[in-house]
Design a protein around this nucleic acid. Structure first.
Lengths: 219, 219, 219, 219
DNA sequence: AATGAATGAGCCTTCATTCAT
DNA sequence: CATGAATGAAGGCTCATTCAT
């Protein structure tokens, strides 16, 4: 997915200039992704054309192909980055030494909060559902994305196990919680939740309470 | 949203021919929607062009504009129809005289099953959600669609009340259940649920069990 | 290859208006082909873009797709027309009642003259050789074109038979003559023949003499 | 056409290092041409982009401009090389002391065989012929190429003279033979000859027979 | 001599929509 | 009501070429 730009010299070591160029290139790649994220957020995934992304990044359309193989590759990179940030966000919410139940709450809330506060990231992920078929993303890349998604949920699953649940039960409860979070985010983001006069945050808290209630008493 | 087709006579009453023409027109409108549904199901929302819909309906593209103001209007009409079918589907699952708990299960399962078995309808619904903005749907039409969505969930809410919950609790639980269903459908439809080795059906049953468990014992 | 524009009514008969529209459409199709021929002649087959053809025809690029399925289809239609004209040209050179030897000369000269006097037609035919692979032309269409090419050479073959040659010999001699004509046209068109200080016309006459010389004496 | 690479010293003499650099440069130039030939053979003239050629040569696109002024210049150099090989091929087919008639056959067959067995070279030659205008080839370079083409045919012409033909007749017959070869190659390469059920090799032999037949008896 | 980035023009094609007939 | 033609904008992408480094 990522553009390979192998230097003609096969040496492992790099000159300072090469390292500098590489860094500059990385930065520019980042700027393009920034522009793409912005465009996707404003115009939707279908509305954000390569031309538009290039325009926002201050490039001509063709220039993007120095950094990405295709429009889909940009999307893939963006989604990858998004998942990295999600993982980082969840990881930051964890503290060593806290009891599993608190860890569970913290991880789930961080996961949910990540998307609640940055709905563009949600849109990004939803591209996969748009045309039924997640066209363009290679299976390998798709697997990698899936793995990072699971990674972000792993702390929840582990907390459940640490709290005494069987692995099977932990996976089951984690999946249900994931579904609940996804549903709430969508209902919130689409304004549908307003039609019930409910608040997604409160409903998440309810769900977490019931998950915790199902656990053997701790400490 | 709907095309106004004012008759030449301004009188309220209609001649027989006018009534006949109206009926014929309605039928043809239906045929177009049929073709559109088919096209969306086969090609996805993005892949189904107006040309393609027209082709399947046996028309030229321009002809569709006699029945709909725009492609988006077709989406809207289709979504409207979809929600009608959803309501009918849920209604058919209800039987007079059954205890609330069973009604609850039946209604929720019917709702979930409708989308599980016809994922295109899910895509259709999510079009609104495309790119943050529900583009192209007038607020009035959007309200009507929202109302029909609530209607489909009403039996669940009423069953909860009938089972003894307070109206506020019932709404709260219904919304949570709705979110769970939406989340499960998406996880299922996108194949993400496979990565947890779980089955959406079973997880829905779990959720329903926990809802029921929260209710006062019946009979 | 040709755009099918079936009317929705399946009746065989056509109204006057339909017939008129059909005729107008045919004319416009012809104007596009005219423009394409011109563009190909001036800019070469690679240089003549769809945009350019459209511009010359007074259309926007998209409009051409009402008449042709693709750029290749335009080329195909053009080549088809060219071969029709070639056939007509050869046919016109034939006169009933002339002895086979004269017929042979007349047909060969007409064939040669057609391309000598209209080198664009030669370029058209040569598109097939450009990229080694005659991409885009469907095999069926290619067969049709081949058949029309053979048709144009048929009078030569038949004259040889009429003059007493065996069918096998006639085919052999016709093929050799065809090769000679092709070679002379190319040498002439590319200016290479000048480098030998020769004239293609004279060399063709030589070849025809030798073909005739190989025949049993007539009358 | 060839890139002028003026040395920094304006003296006619060159330092050893300069001479070495020149040689290295020549070698690399050759490697690029090698890559280009390969790309043309595999992808056709149209399909072989400068990028592709550079890739195969192990360079970035820009680097080629150190060796050639343009893509066309690569074509030109390649064609030049091709004609050199053609001349070598014809020369190798000649043996001292063989009678003119055999020399004639050997030279013509070698010429024909060169292109029959390496049709890419034919394509290359025809590029000049693309779209009427031999774009991008300077007249001087074109002359040089023409001269080398004549050179390749010279043994045929001389054999005819050696066999007793007048110079004028020899040129005439050589040109006709050249045309025949060109025509046969094209008919063969394009598959058109199959439609007559003939074989180019046999038809060439026929033609050579008739050329020989027109000569005074030898030995 | 070579790179990597960038340009700018261009490619063919598709689309929703309009409109005279 | 329906057609067939046409529009105009846009789509993603490729290309030969240039140029600072």
């Amino acid at each position: 997915m990522e553009k390979s730009t192998p230097s003609r010299t096969e040496r492992v070591g790099r000159t300072r200039r090469e390292r500098g160029a590489k860094a500059v290139s990385e930065v520019r790649r980042g700027l393009i992704l920034e522009a793409a994220r912005e465009a996707f957020a404003e115009l939707g995934l279908a509305g954000a054309s390569l031309r538009e992304i290039a325009r926002r990044a201050g490039y001509t359309p063709g220039a993007l192909y120095s950094y990405f193989d295709s429009k889909e590759a940009i999307y893939g990179a963006l989604l990858g980055e998004s998942l990295e940030r999600l993982n980082r966000c969840v990881a930051e919410a964890l503290t060593d030494g806290t009891p599993p139940l608190e860890t569970l709450r913290a991880a789930a809330t961080a996961f949910y909060g990540f998307y609640r506060d940055q709905p563009q990231e949600l849109d990004l992920g939803f591209y996969l559902f748009n045309g039924v078929r997640p066209t363009g993303l290679t299976p390998a890349w798709n697997d990698r994305l899936n793995r990072r998604l699971r990674d972000a949920l792993a702390p929840i699953e582990q907390a459940l196990i640490a709290a005494g649940r069987s692995p099977a039960d932990a996976t089951r409860a984690t999946t249900a919680l994931f579904a609940q979070i996804v549903g709430l985010l969508i209902l919130r983001h689409s304004g549908r939740i307003r039609m019930f006069g409910q608040h997604a945050d409160a409903l998440l808290a309810d769900h977490l309470d019931s998950v915790v209630a199902g656990l053997p008493i701790q400490r």
